[in-house]
Simulated assay, not measured.
Amino acid sequence: MTSVYLGLVHYPVYNRNMEVVTSSVTNFDIHDIARTCNTYAIKNYFIIHPSTNQQEIINEILNYWNVGYGKECNPDRNQALSIVKLVNDITECVSNIQKETGQLPIIMTTDARTYSNTISYKLAREELLVQEQPILLLFGTGWGMQDSVMQAFDYILEPIYGVGEYNHLCVRSAVAIILDRLLGSPWWK
């Protein structure tokens, strides 16, 4: 299986009024997504955020758990957060992966909407098994990434549908569900 990376995009994303904004980082997204990424052997978890104010908050949280009292107090949290990298934008994220692997990653992303390049989880899982290029899974915050940005990616995973009519999962839940669908043990066999 190829190396898989994950990115959490805070810009350009939509707000509830479908205006392009930069979303704020949440402490839960940093911790919980890092823990899920480690569970599924994700190489690096990139927090993609252009705001220096927000980057200071992110760095303060990471430093607390990676070099501060939190490292001694909770080594499991330190282990989970050790794969987190902070970058300004998607381009910098891709560049980091290319420097590390020598290859441009195939970019898969997610959305609650469908696009012309939407693929099923079955096909995406098969792609992960045979692909030699690294894979970057991108998740948008807010109400999803800007449409024009989405069109530039290689694949967009089909929306997650539950049994109810409500369809607005928090990104932490979406990450956990999607990583299990793509990388979890094939329980159905």
Results as ranks from 00 to 15, higher is better:
155 Y>A: 04
115 Y>Q: 05
65 W>V: 00
69 Y>D: 08
178 I>L: 06
183 L>V: 01
44 N>Y: 15
148 S>Q: 15
188 W>E: 13
143 W>L: 00
175 V>H: 07
134 P>R: 09
61 I>Q: 12
127 E>I: 14
66 N>W: 04
96 N>Q: 13
45 Y>H: 13
23 S>V: 04
57 I>E: 08
135 I>L: 10
149 V>L: 14
119 I>W: 05
179 L>P: 06
176 A>T: 11
157 L>G: 07
73 C>N: 00
22 T>V: 10
8 L>D: 04
119 I>P: 05
16 R>W: 10
77 R>Y: 12
72 E>I: 07
31 H>N: 13
18 M>F: 10
15 N>S: 01
154 D>P: 09
49 H>C: 08
33 I>K: 06
184 G>E: 00
141 T>H: 04
38 N>H: 09
146 Q>L: 07
106 I>L: 15
156 I>W: 09
46 F>T: 06
106 I>V: 14
58 I>E: 04
97 I>E: 01
22 T>W: 02
104 L>W: 08
177 I>C: 09
108 M>Q: 11
125 R>W: 07
176 A>E: 09
53 N>E: 15
29 D>E: 13
165 E>A: 12
25 V>G: 02
52 T>S: 15
12 P>C: 10
168 H>D: 07
114 T>V: 15
50 P>M: 05
155 Y>S: 02
160 I>S: 01
41 A>I: 09
120 S>T: 15
152 A>D: 15
133 Q>E: 14
169 L>N: 05
146 Q>Y: 13
39 T>M: 11
44 N>A: 10
46 F>W: 08
172 R>K: 09
147 D>P: 01
146 Q>I: 03
143 W>F: 11
87 V>D: 05
144 G>D: 00
126 E>Q: 15
123 L>D: 14
5 Y>I: 08
22 T>D: 04
83 I>R: 08
135 I>C: 01
183 L>D: 03
88 N>W: 05
67 V>L: 10
178 I>S: 03
97 I>S: 04
57 I>T: 08
114 T>Y: 07
175 V>G: 05
33 I>Q: 02
49 H>L: 11
24 S>N: 14
79 Q>V: 10
9 V>E: 03
184 G>R: 07
48 I>C: 02
170 C>Y: 11
85 K>N: 11
115 Y>M: 06
106 I>P: 05
64 Y>M: 06
63 N>F: 10
12 P>F: 03
118 T>I: 09
